[in-house]
Write a protein that binds this DNA or RNA. Structure first.
Lengths: 141, 141
DNA sequence: GTACATCCTCTAGTGACTAGAGGAGCAAGC
DNA sequence: GCTTGCTCCTCTAGTCACTAGAGGATGTAC
C-alpha cells in the first residue's frame, strides 16, 4: 500500500519547480501520474528518479529533445549505448567551443574595463571598442 | 545629395539580418528611417554605425536593454562613463562565472564519454551518471 | 514585357520555462 | 462546524531575441 508523493514533495526532492513539473508532463517528458480522489497528482519513487535524471541532464545543458532520447535509452538497458555516447560527445564538443569563445570574450571585456578612463564617455574605451569593431580582438562565437 | 542605403545593403554591411533590423526598429533600438517614394526604408551612414555597434554588442553577449543604455551613453559624450563601465564589469563577472561553470561541465562530460564502455546501456557511464546525481562531480551553474 | 530579386506588413512560432488569474481541496486550530 | 492559510488545479499569456512564412508591392535586368 504505497501512497503517492504530492507534486510539492516531488518538487522539493528533485529540485524541479512545481510549474516546471507540470510543464514536463504537458510536453510528454514525464508520464501523467494517477490522480487522487481530489484530483491531485500522485507520484511514486520512479517518477522522482526520472525527474532527477531530467534535472541533472538540464543542469548539464542537454536540450529537452536530447533528454527524451537519453530517457528512452535508459528504458532499454540491452540496447547499444552508441546513441547516448554520440549525444554526450556532441555536447562536449559544443561546450568546448563555447568555453573558447567565452574566454576570448573575457579578454576583450577585460581590455575594455581596464581601459576605462573613469572619465567621460568621449574617452571611454568601453563605448569606443563597441563602436568600432576594428579595435576589437574578439571575433568569436 | 546623399541617397539612402537600402535595408539589404545595410544588412550586408553591418552583418545584421534584414528581419532583425526591422525587429530592432520595432522595439525602438534603431530609429525609424525615412522612406522612399516606394515606401522602402532609406538608411544613412549613421544608422550603419549604430547597427554595427548593436551587432558587436550582441556578439559580446550584451542584452538588448544593456545595449539601449550603452547607445544612449554614446549619444551623450560628456556624461561620465561610470554606467558603461558598470555594465561591462558586471557582464565580465557573469562571463567569468559561466566559464568556470562550463569548465566543470566539460570535465564531467569528458568523464562520461571516456567512461563509456561502448557496449550496452546497462553498463553505460553516460546514462549511469545522469541517473545518479551522487556519481557526478559537477554541481555548477 | 516579363522574370526575378528585394522589399513591405502582419501573424505566429521557437525553447524552456515563468507569472498570474480564478477557483477547489485539505489539515490544523478554535 | 468553521475559519485560516497552504497547496493544489486549469488556463492563458508573457519572457527573450529573434525566425519563418503568407501574401502582396516595387524595382531592376534582360
Amino acid at each position: 500500500m504505497q501512497q503517492g508523493i504530492t507534486i510539492g514533495n516531488v518538487s522539493q526532492a528533485s529540485g524541479v519547480k512545481v510549474p516546471t513539473i507540470r510543464y514536463y508532463e504537458q510536453i510528454g517528458l514525464l508520464p501523467s501520474p494517477p490522480r487522487t480522489e481530489g484530483n491531485r497528482r500522485s507520484y511514486d519513487h520512479e517518477d522522482l528518479e526520472r525527474l532527477t535524471f531530467i534535472r541533472h541532464s538540464r543542469e548539464l545543458g542537454f536540450e529537452i529533445n536530447e533528454i527524451r532520447t537519453l530517457l528512452s535509452l535508459q528504458d532499454q538497458p540491452t540496447v547499444s549505448c552508441e546513441d547516448a555516447d554520440a549525444i554526450a560527445s556532441k555536447h562536449l564538443a559544443d561546450v568546448k567551443l563555447k568555453i573558447a569563445s567565452l574566454t576570448a570574450l573575457q579578454q576583450e571585456l577585460e581590455r575594455m574595463v581596464e581601459g576605462c578612463s573613469h572619465g567621460h564617455v568621449e574617452t571611454c574605451k568601453v563605448i569606443d571598442i563597441l563602436a568600432d569593431h576594428g579595435k576589437c580582438r574578439f571575433h568569436g562565437e
